[in-house]
Amino acid sequence: MGITLALQDFFYALAHQSFLLNALIVGLLAAAAGGLVGPYVVVKRIGYLGGGIAHTVLAGMGIAYFLGASPILGAFICAIISALIIGVISLNQADHEDTLISAFWAVGMATGVLFISQTPGYATNLTSYLFGNLLLTPSGLAPLLALVVAVIGALLLFVHKPLTAVIFDDEFARLRGVPTKALYLLLLCLVAITVVILLQAVGLIMVIALLTLPSALAGHHVGSLGKMMLFASIAGGAFVFIGMGISWVSDLPSGATIVLVCGVSYFFSLLLKRLRS
């Protein structure tokens, strides 16, 4: 099948299959959330924390699933609780942040696996939590995610300035009376919320790709956090669109395809940057 034909096929399906359009909208919202929060994660170098929260979230999803509640609600609650606990313990220097994250990562996954194993019919759902499946997105999810992304954007408009100061030089920010600890915890909560949105698209194992790669790629080409957000959101959206298109016409898993498109683009951008300098 030629590329033109394949594209036609994808656009035709988008126009006629509402579940596909719904999946694309959720994917684009995920890219927007990743683009808004990702630059802070990349610049502050807390990608490992993002990955840790993503895996911890399986506990919340598993428990919610076991109780017959909404897994995404369980994911949101679990993500925020684990982000706050990791943040508070690490701010009080009770242990190294990366050790804490490792503990949460593993314990969260184990808890999730145990609860899911005790719930009948677990296999299919576990796979879509882990690897994502946009095509299985519930139809009511898009408006909820749109609201969450809008709230993240509005919140960042308010706190971007002091948050940047904290990430840039927390000691100086503290001397200026900036509530540095509260803002750091807020950042972790935003990362947690973003991770839950992203895992709808690519699954919790690969969340880190959409959280960091579009932003890192943006950082190769622009010189401010604000521009990184815009660039990363657009790039992430394009990766989701292209990845979904490829997966649709080639009948490949959408999450993995999107992540590969992200990864290839990131390495290409890195190469481009090296060649230019």
């Binding site: 300035k161 009376g177 950082g219 010189g223």
Partner: peptide
């Protein structure tokens, strides 16, 4: 010593503006 990563994507103007941060000038863009 500069405590920040030199590669931080930020302009001279935005760094100097951090000196202007204080209560009542904390939120919303400059």
């Amino acid at each position: 010593f500069a405590r920040f990563a030199r590669a931080f994507p930020i302009s001279v103007e935005d760094v100097v503006l951090m000196g202007r941060l204080k209560r009542g000038r904390m939120l919303l863009p400059w």
